[in-house]
């Protein structure tokens, strides 16, 4: 048990350090790398919760795919950080004001936090007993039955996102010669080559 507690504090402390570094790094690429580091620690926390499936999916999807593309873009863009920081002082007071108000709100909210009487029961209802079912299976059992509607809807959202990004970025350029493999394979020696017997001393034609 001590090991688990220690691991919890380790992961959460590192996650916070990582998150702070995401904000405070001067170089955006370093920020993204810290973000990845934070994701790892979040995955670690999920493992501690016994949600190993979610942990692995977090690593595969966020670290393995999303953050790679993110890093890709940030590296390509070569963002000039001084340009980004230019308006910083100008907007600082407004930003601080809004942030301060939100913080005050959140403090009042969480200081006076109450839960409805039935909340705990309702919250625990969908989760099966972890001892008799693995969490991958448990997730699958509710994802594809109770929440099939939301699951399918999420699929359609992703489809729209895909169509949208293609619509907004894809350009068909004129004058590009593309390899057509079918044509290449369909080509036969007889189409281009002619074997002629040349009599000596005559030459062609």
């Amino acid at each position: 048990m001590i090991a688990a507690t220690l691991a919890f504090y380790l992961f959460s402390a590192l996650a916070i350090v990582g998150a702070l570094n995401v904000i405070f790094q001067r170089n955006p690429v370093h920020s993204v790398l810290w973000l990845i580091f934070t994701f790892f620690n979040a995955a670690g926390l999920f493992v501690l919760l016994g949600a190993e499936f979610v942990a692995m999916i977090l690593v595969i999807v966020y670290v393995g795919a999303v953050a790679v593309l993110f890093l890709f873009v940030v590296m390509m863009l070569d963002i000039n950080i001084t340009m980004v920081r230019e308006g910083f002082l100008k907007y600082l007071p407004v930003g601080l004001l809004v942030g301060g108000i939100l913080l005050a709100e959140l403090i009042t909210v969480f200081a006076g936090w109450v839960m409805s009487d039935s909340a705990d029961v309702l919250r625990a209802a969908p989760a099966p007993d972890p001892s008799d079912i693995g969490n991958t299976e448990a997730l699958g059992l509710i994802l594809y039955t109770d929440y099939i509607y939301v699951f399918q809807a999420a699929g359609i959202i992703l489809l729209v996102a895909m169509i949208g990004s293609i619509v907004l970025t894809h350009r068909t350029r004129a004058g590009v010669r593309k390899q057509v493999i079918g044509e290449q394979n369909a080509r036969r020696p007889s189409d281009t080559l002619e074997v002629v017997k040349v009599e000596s001393g005559k030459g062609l034609q």
């Binding site: 109450v114 839960m115 409805s116 039935s118 909340a119 309702l122």
Partner: peptide
């Protein structure tokens, strides 16, 4: 966080008469 449910019916139950 307050009501422990996201369904409209459940929310109505949880919020009715709640302080």
């Amino acid at each position: 966080g307050f009501s422990g449910t996201t369904s409209f019916a459940g929310l109505a139950d949880a919020l009715t008469g709640a302080e």
